[in-house]
Structure formats: C-alpha cells, structure tokens
Design a protein around this nucleic acid. Structure first.
Lengths: 229, 229
DNA sequence: ACAAATTTAGACACTCTTGTCTAAATCGTC
DNA sequence: GACGATTTAGACAAGAGTGTCTAAATTTGT
C-alpha cells in the first residue's frame, strides 16, 4: 500500500473511495435490517460494488460490522466535540444562546445520519458485542459528558448558573431538551425542525427556571431588548 | 373452542398455558436476536414446546411476532395505568412522594421484563411494521401521556405546582427523572436500584426547583420534620 | 375408560445466505 | 501503451432456517 503524497487528508478516490461507500452502505443496511437480517449482496448493491470487493476489504460480515461501528463512533465524536466548542461561554442572551446550542446538538449529533445510525446499532446489537460497545462507551459518553459538564461548570463559575453538580446538570439539560422527542426517537424517526426547536425551547426554559440566576426583571428585559435590536 | 366456566380470569392451563409460554419465550428470543435472527426452534426449546405447536398456535413467524408485541403492549399499559393510579394527588411530603412515584414508574413499567422487551422491540423493529407500531402508539403513549398530564394538572390546580402546560410538564418530568439512566437504557441494561433512586431524586429536585411553589422555609422544614417523625 | 382434541418427533422440500474460487475486465500509474 | 493492482461476475459448496406433512403419543373433558 502506497502512501499518498497529499499532506494529511486526501480526497477519497479509488481504493479508499470503495472502502467508504462500503462502510456507508453497510451502516444503512445494518440499521434497517439488523445484523442477522443484513445481506451482503444488498450491501454490495447499495455500495455499487461487487460482493467480492467487500470480502477483499473487510474479511467477513462481523469484521465489517465492527468497522461500521468504529467509523460511526469516530465521526459522531468529532461532531459532538465540534458542537460542544460552540457552547455559549459568555452568553449575551442566555436563554436564546442555550436554545441555539441545544438545537445544534440535536441537528448535528443526534438527528443526523451518523447519530441515528450509531444510536440504533447500539440499541439493537449492543448486548451482543460487549467489548466493542464498551469501547464506544469509553470513547463516546466517557469523553463527551465530562466535556459538557466542564462547560456547565464554567457557566456556574461565571455566575450564570446555580448548580451543585455539573455532571448532573449536563445530563438533566439533555434530558429536558429532548423530553418531547423521545417517542419519535424510539421509532427511529426524525423530528421536524420546529419540533426540535419547540422541545429545546421548553427544555431550556425549565432548565433556567431551576438553575438560572435570577437577576432583576429590569436587567433581564433590558438584555433581551438589546439582543433583539 | 369452549368458554371457561370461571367468571373472568382463569388460571392458564393446557392449551392456553402453551400459548403463554410460547409468547413469553418468543419475546425473549426476538429481543436478544432480532426478528431476522430469531430461530423458531430456539423459541420452541425455550418455551418447552415442539416446533409444530408454535405453528399450530400462530401460523407463522410474523404472526407470532405480532402476537408478542400486542401482548407486551397490553401488559405494559396495564402496568403504567396501575402505577399512575398511585400518583400523589394530595402529597404529604411533596418531594418524597414524587420521588417514590418516579421510582415506582421505573421499577414497574420501564425496568421490568415487559418494559425492557417492548422498548427494545419498538426500537429494533418499529420501522419495519408501521401499522403495528402505530397501533402501539395510540394504545400506549397516546393514552398514558394524557393520563400523566392530567395528574400534573390536578397538582397545579391544587396549588402544588406552577406549570403552564401539563403535557410539557409530564414529559419533562420523565426526562429529568431518567436523565442519568439513558446510557444504561441504550445498551439494554438494567440500572441498579440505587441508581434509579439517585436519578429520580436528582430529577425531582430539579423539577421542583423549576415548578414547585415555594412556601416559607419554616413551613417546609416543619413539614419534613413531621414526615420523618 | 373412552373419544376428541392437542401435542410431539422426525423427516422433508425449499429458499436464502455466507464465504471461496476462478478467470476476465478494469483502473491507476509510470 | 504497458504493467501491476484492484475489481468484477458468476459459479459453487456448505450450512442454516422456514414451513409442511405424517403418524404416533399424550392430554383433556365427560
């Protein structure tokens, strides 16, 4: 295998392009049909590749499945960290900023293709591959939750929130913000944009009722007047 | 088929006993292996029944699956309504009563065998049987959420809570109370009793910070002193 | 104890799927 | 244009699973 000359990321072409389209197609089929129901021929057809190519690349069905989960975990993690980087550290309009963050989290990490797929694979096959999903747990929740909690801790330190336990606050934030989307998520559906916004708005309002530091009504009104101007 | 003489519920014996043990075993196998991976011979073995008997009762694999989901939906619904009936309408110690309710909901409806199974089947096979799960949605969430919301509305009317929208409050209550159990649920695990209690306690505290009507600190202290006496 | 209904074990045809193998075709690169 | 690497199509063996059938055994109600 020859190294590419291009410095770091190279546009997927040839061999690598096949690998990607295989993993992508496999993700879709594994999700729709489950591991047992997934059909290599179907994956090959959806990837626009011959069956033999799949075996050349990945060996067998189980190794292909592992590759799919690893890829999804990596991409989802990247998305989550990228979104956490947009957390409002020094909010102008606190409520609106938190709602924006919640919506971004939903759209870029939970409701997008990778997020839906990874969640479904964890739910359906998690118990069958303990080591694989233990790995996901470390790499995923094990790293993203502390990062989230750190952001809430900073807000508390900055005087914006009155929370005792940043870890609990982070988890409750997500629970609130997704509270109205649970049934849709269960059935594997994708909530419409206005539903996401609605749930996020209601969730953030409740979160701030519980943890927001109350400043005088006047200063709050002044602030939102400024923000909407 | 002859009607039993016993008035309403009769102890499952003979024919009916077989039917039950088949559906029970099938639920377990469908959950572990998925619909495609589920093996009729294995179900027969776990039910202690011959394969032919399964075909006598249910016709084919798909009809058996439908029967499993219908049975689970019915039993889970019964459990949820029974638990909602224990909702604290006139709470003595509000916080403790809500925590108790949340814990009961978890233990009797979400973490028990039927709850786990139904949830997993919805997640894994929901998209494949739209009509079947539309039926679940009507019979399940479509009836239980309004019942929950009605209880919160009554608390608000009784002056215990300051909520605007009882439906939103009900969903947020469940979101908060389960906030710390999500990862465990995802992987199909069963949280330990103290984890359930911890999550419920934290969730209810936050819920009450947001919506609880603040009475004077003295009266609150007097009340909990009375409760713990 | 008898008769009807139900259950059982086993064999069976049929289909579907995985993973391997081969020879031809195509692609990328020099 | 030529060469090596990769991909393709198709055939193939081996295994597993569904659903049917039959005849014998068992259970159930009377």
């Amino acid at each position: 295998m020859r190294l590419s000359v291009s410095p770091d990321t190279f546009p997927p072409r040839g061999h690598e392009a096949k690998r990607l389209s295989i993993v992508d197609a496999a993700a879709g089929v594994f999700c729709r049909e489950g591991f047992a129901g997934a059909n290599i021929d179907l994956i090959a057809a959806e990837a626009g590749v011959s069956r033999q190519t799949i075996y050349n690349h990945h060996g067998d069905k189980e190794k292909l499945f592992v590759a799919v989960v690893r890829d999804l975990t990596e991409r989802c993690n990247a998305g989550i960290f990228a979104t956490i980087a947009t957390f409002p550290d020094q909010p102008k309009d606190f409520e609106a900023d938190l709602i924006g963050f919640a919506v971004r989290l939903n759209q870029n990490c939970i409701c997008n293709r990778d997020g839906k797929f990874l969640r479904k694979l964890i739910q359906t096959e998690g118990e069958r591959y303990p080591e694989l999903f233990a790995e996901w747990r470390e790499q995923g929740p094990g790293r993203t939750w502390p990062a989230m909690a750190a952001r809430f801790a900073r807000l508390a330190y900055g005087g914006y929130l009155a929370i005792e336990d940043p870890d609990v606050a982070a988890r409750q934030f997500l629970g609130l913000v997704n509270a109205e989307l649970q049934t849709t998520f269960m059935l594997g559906g994708t909530p419409r944009e206005e539903e996401v916004l609605q749930s996020a708005t209601n969730g953030v309002r409740t979160f701030l009722r519980a943890f927001g530091k109350r400043r005088s009504a006047a200063s709050v009104e002044k602030q939102s007047a400024l923000a909407s101007a």
